[in-house]
Amino acid sequence: MILALLTHGAWGKSLLTSAELIVGPIKDVVCFPLQPDRSFKEYVNEIEGFINKNQEDILLMADLMGGSTFHAAGKLSTIDRVQAICGLSLELLILADELRREYPISALSRLLIERARDKIVDMETILGKE
């Protein structure tokens, strides 16, 4: 299974580097940076071309709900063997890399959301209010 990072600008690549600092080399991740000079159509076509060339399952991970990366992921999620999720973060990337070793793509989005949801917390909740 391939993880595809759909990001505004090139931060997907930095994110991958940072994730690798924590868990070591991560294979089968591909970045699709959306740059201001590129048209939305061309962006979608590029990702679609990649999907067609690789017969593996692909999880698209977009960085901003309502943004163009999110729309591209949504459009392409109708392809069989492609799933899409939004809310890309270091947390989500590391989780996805772990979970894809154990679970099929059909189960991944739901599991990721379940497990990532608890990871946005405030310290007051953890430490209790003085």
Binding site: F40, L64, M65, G66, G67, S68, F70, H71
Partner: peptide, 9 residues
């Protein structure tokens, strides 16, 4: 805007 409806913009 070729991206039409997109987020905060």
């Amino acid at each position: 805007d070729d991206r039409l409806v997109h987020g905060q913009i």
